[in-house]
Design a protein around this nucleic acid. Structure first.
Lengths: 191, 191
DNA sequence: TAGATTTATTACCATAGGGTAATTTTTATG
DNA sequence: CATAAAAATTACCCTATGGTAATAAATCTA
């Protein structure tokens, strides 16, 4: 929790009242590998800030295939933001892929923080700006890079995830099958 | 310009002073088909709000191929947001694909609006939230849909763009070549 | 440690989509 | 309107990736 408070203080100055409010709408939680925090189809009442470990969000398509939208490691936020920001039911599942520690926020109360403590507007705007940047880059990379290039980039972006998550999760993030990932890795190793 | 003011008033209450400020940092501009508003490699001093016509942003990869990141029609914002939010040089080009009318903002002054008129924080946060939602959906659609499905979805999302933009721009947005788009459309028509 | 389970690899063939180039169609312009 | 230019289509063959299935390797668990 202190990690998060410090993170916030790195961007905005946080009044004692605002800090107190955070403690009333959030609580630290230890979660286990494979635990599901948000269920596809249900309403999204929680948003998570990761302080340790790794989580992912993914959707399951009509053929049952999983597509990973996001990995979240230390200091990342994760939820089903499509559901939260559009007030819809979850189309994603959020799952722990390692044992982890998260700060669990009540989504509704988190959304009220801005009217109570407007200083959070700046914090959230900057978060969202960074988020947009990373999504734009991901879309462009998906358009212009080969699967192998995307895999190499992934390894540099998430150097610690590879050890903790099966290859098929990484493949589902890169937009290929696990067999293809295995193949391109093998071809790459040959050279 | 009045379109934009009304749009803003739809989300927040706009003081006369804030409205006045907008007029000092933005001006309406008529631009022509094929005109380039932001050049890849240069610094991004402008951000655009479209009131009429259609623009797009794209990058050019190492092989010279174009990849369209965004189309912008009436009431959309367009710029190189990666550059704006990360304070980097443009990696995108922004181009008019029809004659158009835009409200041209000075990016730097636009970024100062929040400290001068904090009411814009809410407006911008909601814009960014919607933007994140649309980007998440786009990423998931790219992962789970076929090229033909993505094309059909594109037509429903941008019903007016098809008439005004060549197919190869649409193809470059969908992540396929124009030949592939032509082929899948032909195969679809056969059925 | 043995056996069971999960994950990764490999092989085989199938398919979507790419690259090049020729051709047709559409659009712009003198 | 005639011509040129741009855009779209089609054909051909090629490559990257997918689907299925068998096998191997790694990991978990009794």
């Amino acid at each position: 929790m202190q990690d998060l408070i410090n993170k916030i203080k790195g961007t905005i100055s946080l009044s004692p009242e605002a800090e107190q409010y955070i403690y009333t709408i959030a609580k630290e939680k230890v979660v286990s590998k494979d635990e599901i925090l948000i269920f596809q189809g249900q309403s999204v009442t929680k948003t998570y800030y990761v302080t340790q470990g790794c989580l992912r969000s993914f959707c399951i398509d009509k053929d049952g295939k999983e597509h990973t939208l996001q990995f979240a490691i230390k200091d990342w936020w994760i939820s089903d933001f499509m559901a939260v920001y559009s007030n819809e039911r979850a189309s994603l599942t959020v799952q722990c892929i390692t044992d982890a520690t998260v700060v669990e926020f009540d989504t509704k109360k988190l959304n009220e923080i801005y009217s109570q403590f407007p200083e959070f507007e700046v914090f959230q705007r900057k978060n969202l700006e960074r988020h947009v940047v990373s999504l734009h880059k991901r879309i462009l990379n998906q358009l212009r890079m080969t699967a192998l290039e995307r895999y190499h980039l992934f390894l540099t972006q998430y150097p610690d995830i590879e050890q903790h998550t099966p290859n098929y999760h990484i493949a589902s993030y890169l937009g290929i099958t696990q067999q293809s990932l295995s193949r391109v890795r093998a071809e790459n190793a040959k050279k």
